[in-house]
Design a protein around this nucleic acid. Structure first.
Lengths: 144, 144
DNA sequence: GCTTGACCTTCCTATCATGGGAAGGTCCAT
DNA sequence: ATGGACCTTCCCATGATAGGAAGGTCAAGC
């Protein structure tokens, strides 16, 4: 099976299949006389494995570890679980961070009239902490 | 104020300040005779603005738009709000995606014994859709 | 057997925001 | 005038992915 067929069978682009070969993650079973990569069922399964793992947000580094556990029939499931749990914690942290951003912005947007006038609490927030620059603001600042 | 002082005053690294100059986002007010960048209060405020916007997850592209609205005293707040709302929708979509990943993995991890044995529902899921490769599995597959 | 088009190969480039580092110039205090 | 802390530009790297160029290979139809 050449790279194009492997791509169709696995759903991974030929570009990425070559990349996985290059970084040593999934090497072709062999090469033809004319240097074409040849893949068999084993590699196809590994490519599918990678695709599914990517869709669950694992990094290539984590996938390298998962794939090596997958290849090892004697692996302790503990190790797989540890990687998954670490990844879940990572996802949760990033979700919380983005949630905080979204909540802040939702609040600011809610307070913004969103009309023709220039007054805008969103820009005001982004300006927070900045020194006053307009003459009027300098007057106000001195008055404080 | 030279770049090091601007960095301290804004909390943006000198590397990034040079980068913002390079892409034309925030140009120094002037250059000294010896080609040192010089910043004044206006640029410092813009750097702070960018820093805050980045912390809310805006892309540099969105920040370019926000900064140009910020500089425009006549801007309609509608435009600012539109950018913010689009970004919130974007964040929400990404959060939902990651939430789905985390939920799936939490479930799989929950079903995984996490002990010395090799059986692992997490790896099984990643293998889903793959063709059977072991002799026993081939026998089972033929039987279906 | 030859042409054609679809495929394959390697190599280079870019993304986006950020940081690391080298080589060389500048500024200021001692 | 020397040293150290700063500045400058230029190049490279990240992670996962895609685009494209230049050239070789294969199979089908004539």
């Amino acid at each position: 099976m050449n790279i194009g067929q492997a791509s169709k069978a696995s759903g991974v682009t030929t570009k990425m299949i070559r990349y996985y070969d290059e970084i040593g993650l999934v090497r072709p079973a062999s090469r033809t006389d004319s240097n074409y990569r040849e893949y068999d069922a084993r590699q196809i399964n590994e490519l599918r494995f990678i695709k599914r793992a990517r869709s669950l947000g694992f990094s290539m580094d984590e996938i390298t570890q998962l794939l090596s556990l997958w290849r090892d029939r004697e692996r302790p499931s503990r190790e797989v679980k540890a990687i998954a749990d670490r990844h879940v914690a990572d996802l949760d942290a990033r979700i919380a961070e983005m949630q905080a951003m979204a909540d802040t912005l939702r609040h600011l947007s809610h307070c913004c009239a969103g009309d023709d006038r220039p007054d805008c609490p969103i820009l005001a927030d982004l300006t927070a902490g900045a020194e006053p620059t307009t003459p009027l603001e300098r007057v106000k600042a001195r008055a404080r």
